[in-house]
Write a protein that binds this DNA or RNA. Structure first.
Lengths: 156, 156
DNA sequence: CGTAAAAAGACAACCTGGCTGTCTTTTTAC
DNA sequence: GTAAAAAGACAGCCAGGTTGTCTTTTTACG
């Protein structure tokens, strides 16, 4: 059956939503009712080295103000701590807390289970091929998390 | 290289954004600066039979209030017309206008070009396989368009 | 035929995650 | 020493979603 380009876009979004919705549901079942995908991705970015709001914004391809909002929520919920940067008074250093790491670990485990389910359904080789193709097509482009309906713009 | 489940989710989102961002940019170049993906998908759903706000909401997996907002924007911009339903006074019938169809046609063409570019890069057979796999995995699940960071809920 | 339930839509307010604009403080570069 | 750049704070706005409440109309049922 022939598909249109728009259908391809919807398939990709559908795949994303399937994984993410299932992951969020499972995290909620495990007691974390207040974690959304952007939170997990933000914590991953912080743990990977984006340790201030400006850097996190760049990592997530959002403004530092938007990143700061997300940080505020993560801080409020105890997943991230903020402290002064000893080497630069302008900066606030971000630290993923133990609770934050716990949520990230559970998130990883859940995503792995979901991915394993996908591998079981279409074949591990086929899934690896699918991932390789998407890596080729998407490349290193920064991924933005705003509303699929929304249009982001280049950031400073 | 081994990938995590979260990376898979990001690859899917990245693929979606790549297509959609490029499509929106190209539509803007062709004079339609005010069309966002949710508008195109809403018009597609209306043209496919979701001809009132409640039905559109179900189609898009959002509340009828949210669908009504999108309809309001599309109406304001001349892409959709709203008229009373002769058979049911409660309902407002939605009609995609000629301008709306024009935008949809251009959107289709742009998405086809983008998809063709993908086929050129990884092979038409490989792309068809990727689509078939995603169709298997995503199935008929309704796709929601809210913020990837957001968590939608079951709707009435 | 009358009434309760359901459906469609309108309206208001809220939420989330993005944006722009403005400002202050601090660091860097010259 | 000063200008430019960077980091962050704050306010307000935007888009697209939600919930809650309400009215009108249709449907189902006794």
């Amino acid at each position: 059956m022939s598909r249109t380009g728009a259908d391809l876009a919807l398939l990709l979004l559908g795949g994303f939503r399937t994984l993410v919705d299932d992951a969020v549901d499972e995290l909620a079942r495990r007691g974390h009712h207040d974690v959304r995908p952007v939170h997990d991705f933000a914590m991953r970015a912080i743990a990977a080295g984006a340790d201030n709001a400006s850097a996190l914004g760049r990592h997530l391809s959002v403004t530092k103000q938007s990143a700061a909002k997300t940080i505020g929520v993560l801080q409020e919920r105890g997943y991230v701590a903020v402290e002064p940067d000893p080497g630069d008074a302008r900066r606030k250093r971000l630290i993923v807390t133990e609770l934050g790491f716990e949520v990230m670990r559970q998130g990883e485990a859940i995503f792995e289970e979901l991915r394993a389910g996908w591998a079981a359904r279409i074949g591990a080789e086929e899934l690896a091929t699918l991932e390789r193709h998407l890596t080729t097509l998407v490349g290193a482009r920064p991924i933005r998390f705003d509303t699929p309906g929304g249009v982001g713009r280049d950031l400073t």
